[in-house]
Design a protein around this nucleic acid. Structure first.
Lengths: 220, 220
DNA sequence: GTCCCCCTCTCCCTGACGGGCGAGGGGGAA
DNA sequence: TTCCCCCTCGCCCGTCAGGGAGAGGGGGAC
């Protein structure tokens, strides 16, 4: 971690590139270039000596011209020491699969926090993968060729009910009153729920609940 | 509050009626009847002596037959001591206006907590109105005939940014790191935000943010 | 009958959260 | 200039949230 990681940003939107650049320059990263398309990225790599090559390429998947997947493949072929991190907006089963098959080391969504992005990039240089949790689930599904249930399906009915209340913004006390439980019992459930969903606190659980449609329409 | 409030439930879905009944019987309410339509409700009221009339009618707006607004009007006319609380799924400007004009004392959404529903009903018997916050805003708009900005429009840019992070499930510490602020400063913002939005805590603020589209699409 | 899961509860401890207050600096508006 | 809003920070204090461990009862599965 002595010298800054050299990063190449590939995204077809100039504003996005600028945003990522600003974020990364804030930390200790060296932006060695930007590209607006896969072709451009590949060309940029081709014109560099092996000592001058980026450590990590941050790449969006949705771009005109050369398909991003193909770009990943060529980049990895031309410069095996360069790692590719996919940084995109949506997460789809096939895309994850293809990107990793093409040689990407990680798959992030643009909702990533600066701190996590930094960790992912530093890790990528060391060859450490970084996958969005949902991408991990999809991968697991592929590998085992069995459906891996989304975390909330492992909730018991009671936990599910409590999660619904959390998703409506209730405090533990309110939930306890609503369900005629002791507050301690509710706390017990919340802990189990956070654990199962892989979230850190009730706010994240609430967001998870609404995103996954676990809060009835009329209750929002 | 000595004797139980006498309640009539009006909703075209039997399941909903049952749900409300279960909730209310759990507390100290007396369900004096159910009706599946406005006509039925009006007829039910007509067949009762004034001593036998419900204190509060809980009524959905979306029902076949006699328009709910008209039903409210007739109920209020036939039995002025009976208060009508609208309990519906959606909230629309015109409906609020019309329901109140027809004599309703309150306007609730079905997302209401048991405890609040109970308070609204008890209050209604005393002639105390109960309006969903958004209904209050719409009303205010009508009365002043000036647009009343939704609460989040009064946020400063910085507060808005902090709310976005809250809407992504960040803790105060994470927000501080993300924005290069002290945790104390972030706490200050969160308090102001909760105050402006009229919410109790960060979970409710996060839910508010996503519901009102304050968290960028790609950040969810 | 036994086992295991689910539901419920309790106690304790730490840290995070949220309210209230004050305070300084910067910039725009009157 | 003066005033006010915004941004930033600090401190105190009470409450809430979350982790951990343990424990009892009920009911279904085997």
């Amino acid at each position: 971690m002595s010298e800054p990681v050299r990063v190449l940003i590939v995204d077809d939107h100039q504003i996005v590139r600028q945003g990522i650049r600003a974020v990364l320059e804030d930390e200790d990263f060296e932006i060695v270039g930007e590209a607006g398309s896969g072709d451009e990225a590949v060309a940029l790599l081709a014109g560099r000596s092996s000592a001058d090559v980026p450590d990590v390429v941050l790449m969006d998947l949705v771009m005109p011209g050369l398909p991003a997947i193909e770009a990943i493949r060529r980049i990895r072929q031309a410069s095996p020491s360069t790692q590719v991190l996919v940084l995109t907006t949506f997460l789809e089963d096939r895309q994850v699969q293809e990107a990793l098959a093409a040689g990407a080391i990680g798959f992030l969504l643009k909702d990533v926090l600066k701190s996590d992005l930094a960790r992912a990039i530093r890790g990528a240089r060391q060859g450490r993968p970084w996958l969005h949790p949902e991408a991990q689930r999809l991968l697991m599904q592929r590998v085992t060729s069995r459906p891996v249930p989304p975390p909330h399906e492992t909730l018991t009915p009671r936990e599910r009910t409590v999660l619904e209340l959390i998703g409506r913004g209730c405090s533990n006390k309110q939930i306890a009153a609503e369900l005629h439980l002791s507050e301690g019992t509710v706390k017990g459930y919340t802990s189990l729920i956070f654990d199962k969903l892989g979230v850190a606190d009730r706010t994240q659980a609430a967001l998870y609940a609404v995103r996954n449609g676990l809060v009835p329409e009329s209750e929002r």
